[in-house]
Design a protein around this nucleic acid. Structure first.
Length: 505
RNA sequence: GUCUUGUUAGCUCAGCUGGUAGAGCACGUCACUUUUAAUGAUGUGGCCGAUGGUUCGAAUCCAUCACAGGACACCA
């Protein structure tokens, strides 16, 4: 039953008392004429005045009451709007007869949203405040706020009731503002470079463009299943075929896989595709992109992340095979020999799936021995062709691709390559994926004949890249769980025992 | 998916090897016209996550379930 909590009952009664006294507890007649931040800025000169006040100035601010100190015939309240926090001084004798005692003291409390008019002054303790001459309730909060000092720290409550988390924790609001800025800066960066923002389908007939298990939904009108997209790649490349030369999309992908500190079933990425460029150009634009972000977010190039320090003046570039020996410490005679890698991994008590090819085994070695050691931004290049089904082969060595992944603070941030535009090679690689799928790899690609068809018309030489926005934001805000950079992270529904019993009866 | 830790008042947390609940904040009442987590006095508030079991007796021990955190696996 809703509203059964005794505190809520008590506050509903207060709202009723206000109505009875002729005060609308949910008034929408707001006269606010400034924000708290502006108020504090504009009136910062008050403390230099002789009597530390200016009764000729008049402002009206609104906000939620976060703290309330009632001291007999006068009170202090801290109210907060999106821009900041302001102390308000409310004295009985400055308000209409009886309003202070019967309305304010009895029926207005922490959590309520009020509007206060008055003039600026500085208190004896030196805090610029607002001296109230008028006070009005805008919204009665019938649920009490969490404890004023500790706030709400329970992660389950914070994620399920993000609004409460946002009310109580200013640093959480800051993180999400930074997230918003990152997305907006990203958009501006690519637009300024002449990229065209596009939207491609979220529901795909074939889930392609990545190795992942898709969510399935059903389209009744057509009587067919649809897959929520796992990546926009194949559609964006169709647009390059169509003649757009630089496109990007910032949007959600969906993967039906496990959840943990770095994985949410829906996550945001930017993918961009750039005709007549190669992965080498992508390395350059990536460096430029980070520089742009750091400049506009005012971040230090020596960025702290947990107990690490990431040096963004030190971008490193190293081929994957080389990284296995120089960074991973894997013996040189092992890294290019399938049997020796299997032997090596087994000797380290690591499980090796049967039937893995050389490229996959090298990928295993990389994940096991190199990835977590890549703290400063590192472009790992020259990926084996077996684990890069959509990337162009190197002209010098058909076993490797013109690809890189960017790692920062031990985590993959971006994946990029010169795109495979040979339709026959792409067809063969899809077939290889289909064989892998038939052999039990349920994350292997499916054959996408329509995409082959598109490539058949000719896709200009193109380079494309994907950047995980959530992980990027984690890095830039020093957050260590993806849930802390998602406003509403995926949560299991709360099991309602009562409801279930009723349904069973 | 596996392992592990947790779940006690609206919130933050105590509660020892079993004897049916405590604090602070919040809330109610009273006092207080410059406070800073205001203060002082006083009071209300709980099916101890759910269901079973062991026991004379369970917040406490055991089992199952639910949800969450962390780690691992898979992946981005």
């Amino acid at each position: 039953m809703a509203f059964e909590n005794k505190f809520i009952q008590q506050r509903i009664e207060k709202a009723q008392l206000l109505k009875d006294a002729g005060f609308n507890p949910y008034s929408n007649e707001s006269k606010r004429n400034t924000t708290i931040e502006k108020y504090l800025n504009v009136n910062s000169d008050i403390e230099d005045k002789e009597d530390k006040r200016d009764e000729n100035r008049h402002y009206c601010v609104s906000g939620r009451i976060k703290l309330l100190r009632i001291m007999g015939k006068a009170s202090f309240a801290k109210i907060e709007d999106e821009s900041g926090m302001l102390q308000v001084y409310i004295a009985r004798d400055n308000l209409p007869e009886d309003f202070y005692n019967t309305i304010f003291k009895k029926n207005i409390e922490v959590g309520d949203i009020i509007e206060v008019s008055g003039y600026p002054f500085v208190t004896g303790k030196g805090e610029l405040s607002l001296h109230a001459t008028e006070l009005k309730l805008l919204t009665k909060a019938i649920a009490p706020l969490p404890e004023k000092f500790h706030g709400v720290t329970d992660k389950e409550i914070r994620y399920r009731k993000r609004y409460l988390d946002l009310i109580m924790n200013a640093e959480v609001r800051k993180t999400f503002k930074t997230r918003s800025k990152v997305i907006s800066l990203t958009r501006r960066f690519f637009e300024d470079k002449g990229f065209l923002e596009v939207e491609t389908p979220m529901m795909h007939p074939i889930a392609g463009g990545a190795n992942a298990k898709p969510f399935v939904t059903h389209h009744n009108a057509l009587g067919i299943d649809r897959f929520l997209r796992i990546a926009p790649e194949l559609y964006l490349k169709r647009l390059i075929v169509g003649g757009f030369e630089a496109v990007f999309e910032i949007n959600r992908n969906f993967r039906n896989e496990g959840m943990d500190a770095t994985h949410n079933p829906e996550f945001t990425s930017i993918e961009f595709y750039w005709a007549y460029k190669t992965y080498k150009d992508l390395i350059e634009i990536t460096k430029e992109y980070f520089q742009y972000l750091f400049e506009h977010l005012n971040l230090p190039s020596l960025l702290p992340y947990g107990d690490m320090e990431v040096n963004f003046d030190n971008f490193v570039e190293i081929p994957l095979i080389e990284s296995l020996t120089t960074i991973g410490g894997v013996p040189a005679e092992v890294v290019n020999d399938k049997e020796k890698i299997v032997e090596f991994l087994k000797s380290k008590n690591l499980t090796v799936k049967p039937g893995m090819n050389l490229g996959q085994l090298q990928g295993e070695l990389f994940d096991e021995y190199v990835e977590e050691k890549l703290i400063d931004p590192t472009f790992i290049t020259e990926y084996p062709v077996e684990i890069s089904p959509l990337a162009r082969r190197s002209d010098d060595n058909p076993d490797i691709t013109e690809r890189f992944e960017l790692f920062i603070a031990g985590r993959e941030i971006a994946n990029a390559f010169s795109e495979l535009n040979d339709p026959v090679d792409q067809y063969e690689r899809f077939k290889g994926q289909v064989d892998a799928k038939d052999a039990g790899d349920d994350e292997a690609h499916e054959m996408d004949e329509d995409f082959i068809d598109a490539l058949s018309y000719g896709m200009a030489p193109t380079a494309g890249q994907g950047i995980g926005i959530d992980r990027l934001v984690m890095l830039l805000t020093n957050e260590h769980s993806i849930r802390d950079v998602l406003l509403f992270p995926a949560m299991k529904p709360i099991h309602n025992e009562e409801k279930i019993t009723q349904e069973e009866e």
